[in-house]
Design a protein around this nucleic acid. Structure first.
Lengths: 218, 218
DNA sequence: TAATGATATATTGTATACAATATACAAATA
DNA sequence: TATTTGTATATTGTATACAATATATCATTA
């Protein structure tokens, strides 16, 4: 057996991951303008690898680089989030339809158990668990996707939704409804009912989307 | 009216566009390893902006950057092209279905005329015109797409197909069949028959895909 | 006072220099 | 001879220095 390859992560890549996490975890306020020198001294690196990291983050839509101006962190307006979710709805439902037979049933089943187990917890922990199972569910769909190109797009879109997911779940009121939303999908998958699974998945996304669409008043 | 903003294109961006075009036009052989210094002297620039351009091209799947090794231009194997086309099939057909009412009928109609006009040409020019109309047709779908995120993905995928498109069309044998493939789509759209249009579009992609799948013997 | 223009400062874009690593080649050893 | 190991070379990764541009400040003028 070959020894697992040692990968000396380049500085640029480390910066990339670190900034990615910071941004996706909402550590920077909306509209925050990143100054290269400032970031450099904070991270203890020089501008070259920092800029290379920023360029990659820009290409992935994590931040926005404007020529001769710099980078800003721009949270999507509610309408933008709705649009992003609409894109995910289309792609994930399609994936569910086209690659239904690839889904890892074992994993879905243990997800079902996890969700039921979670109901025994208090409200705060329950909300966290819902978020986690939600993430797992959508990751399962990516795993089932037999097309690399489509899978990458799904993954990127899911990442971009991350900053908003957290906020919403903390506010949601009707917990039982939220749980049954997920349970319907999971049960349909386990029962092998493709059309139903897709239908419930549509509903799941529609629920999120309308949440943001209602906020358009801002 | 505000004066159209003067955009001093940065060196990095110019390099980016230039390399992009070179690569998509198959100017580099498959597996070509790009050496930074060599590229620099060829383009008359320093390594910093060159590297920034390479990083962006890497993120878009136009080339492959490997840590501590460099960039290589890698053409997809036939199976990869088939997979890429399969992804486009799913996305473009979905877009056609979801945003059918947004399609610019004027443009489709003039496309129809262009295609019929083209038939009067000799074989070489006809092939070129088919390629052009094909591109326009797929661009029309992007334009109709009411979702920014999806539209960007469609565009990126279309770009990545470019290097292969040219090769295939030059080889194709049954020109009349190829023309009717497109005509069926166009006519269905003009007739407002959404389901038919999607069906013919599916067939259109399937034809391309099977062309590459048959080459798997390599 | 409001608007304009000149100057100084700050910030990004690019080039170069240096460091770390990988590749190629030759010598040494079994 | 085949394999290994050390050394030289080439190439990428990072830091710094410089250039071009944008932003802010303040004086000037209508």
């Amino acid at each position: 057996m070959s020894p697992s390859k040692i990968r000396h992560l380049s500085l640029s890549e480390e910066i990339y991951s670190r900034l990615m996490r910071m941004i996706l975890d909402n550590k920077y306020p909306d509209g925050y303008r990143m100054r290269e020198e400032k970031l450099c001294s904070e991270l203890g690196v020089s501008r070259t690898p920092l800029r290379e990291a920023l360029i990659r983050l820009d290409r992935e839509g994590i931040l926005e680089r404007m020529p001769r101006y710099g980078c800003i962190i721009r949270r999507l307006p509610a309408s933008g989030i709705a649009e992003l979710l609409e894109c995910r709805r289309m792609l994930e439902c399609m994936t569910l339809r086209e690659y239904f037979q690839n889904i890892d049933m074992e994993a879905v089943n243990s997800l079902k158990l996890r969700l039921e187990e979670a109901k025994k917890n208090g409200d705060d922990e329950l909300r966290t668990e819902i978020l986690n199972t939600d993430e797992t569910l959508h990751e399962l769909i990516v795993s089932a996707c037999g097309n690399r190109f489509l899978a990458k797009q799904l993954k990127d879109l899911q990442l971009r939704c991350r900053p908003y997911r957290v906020l919403r779940c903390a506010e949601a009121g009707d917990i039982p409804a939220i749980i049954s939303e997920r349970r319907n999908i999971i049960n349909s998958i386990l029962a092998g009912k493709k059309a139903d699974a897709e239908k419930w998945m549509q509903a799941h996304f529609d629920a999120s989307r309308s949440y943001y669409e209602e906020q358009r008043t801002e």
